[in-house]
């Protein structure tokens, strides 16, 4: 087990190195850099000024030197300066991470909180009206784009209550704080919840047909015990895999949700940074997301072993 963990950790480092190279090269393949954009916004180019600015930002150096400079800084904990705000990249990124983390955490919580029980209910009531209704809800969750759902929620909120849960960095009440995170988390988590529900349902249906479930019922166990203690425990593994993957993919959904709800999180910031070709921000943020994804995958794999005694990672 120990050797397996070490092997996985080494693999994680290699993966992260590969990602760092890919991010770095891809960013520089995309036409235009921050200097082009700054001058584009001004509607003119002064070649001398442009050259000065490129020199100031280190963009005149070879790509290899720039990469080594970045990686060297990263290892020392120096993430460089944002080209746009001229503030340290860490200072720009750090305050935004908890905002997105809260949103992502809540979205995942909602997806598990609603997706798993509804999936179980749908499975145990297979073929009933309730099952059909829940399947329609889950299908709509997968079909509705989160930006559209977000806008719809905002419009409904304005039209019904005359207000809307727009982000406020200093919420006055707990209710306000709940609203500014929960509503967008519901909008982004709806899709994940639908997916989790479908996976839970299909996994449960498969398990519920197993012999040991019949045996449990024959022994006189209640339906709740059969469904939640015997069936769900064994049906949960694919659900955890999906939640792990969703955690990684959530950033995509968060970009639009943060934009629609005007939440100053990491996801929206990343899009803006890409628009400005703010390399230090994009590189470091994408690396951060890569670390989150790699760690999430690793955690899911470790959870398998914890949840299913049949799974053992051998050396």
């Amino acid at each position: 087990m120990f050797a397996y963990i070490v092997r996985r950790l080494v693999l994680m480092l290699v993966t992260l190195f590969g990602i760092s190279v890919i991010i770095f090269v891809l960013l520089r393949i995309v036409p235009g850099n921050i200097v082009d954009i700054l001058f584009d916004a001004a509607g003119f180019v002064d070649k001398a000024d442009k050259a000065n600015l490129e020199r100031e930002l280190g963009l005149d150096q070879s790509i290899v030197v720039q990469y080594l400079h970045w990686i060297g800084g990263l290892l020392r904990g120096d993430l460089g300066y944002s080209y746009v705000s001229e503030k340290p990249a860490l200072e720009e990124i750090l305050p935004r991470i908890p905002i997105t983390a809260r949103l992502a955490g809540l979205a995942l919580l909602f997806s598990a909180m609603f997706g798993i029980p509804l999936g179980v209910i749908s499975a145990v009531n297979q073929g009933t009206r309730l099952d059909y209704a829940l399947r329609v809800v889950s299908l709509s969750g997968l079909s509705l784009p989160s930006f559209w759902l977000g806008l719809l929620i905002l419009m409904a909120s304005v039209s019904l209550f005359g207000t809307m849960p727009i982000f406020n960095p200093n919420p006055q009440t707990f209710g306000q704080a709940l609203a500014i995170y929960c509503v967008p988390a519901l909008a982004v988590g709806f899709r994940s919840a639908a997916l989790v529900m479908r996976i839970t349902r299909s996994s449960m249906l498969e398990i519920l047909r197993q012999d040991y479930i019949r045996t449990a019922r024959a022994k006189g166990a209640s339906e709740t015990t059969v469904n939640y203690q015997h069936a769900l425990k064994n049906a949960i593994l694919p659900v955890i895999t999906v939640i792990g993957i969703e955690a990684a993919f959530l950033i995509g959904g968060l970009i639009v949700t943060e934009t629609v709800f005007n939440i100053p999180g990491v996801a929206r910031f990343l899009v803006e940074a890409i628009r400005w070709r703010d390399y230090p921000i994009v590189q470091n943020l994408v690396m951060f997301i890569a670390v989150v994804v790699v760690v999430a995958n690793f955690t899911v794999d470790m959870l398998y072993a914890a949840l299913d005694p049949r799974i053992r990672y051998t050396d």
Partner: peptide
């Protein structure tokens, strides 16, 4: 000034009195 690049959100927020 609150920066809201999404025009729909911005207009809704104005309508809502934000």
């Amino acid at each position: 000034f609150t920066i809201i690049p999404n025009r729909s959100t911005a207009i809704l927020a104005f309508v809502a009195g934000k």
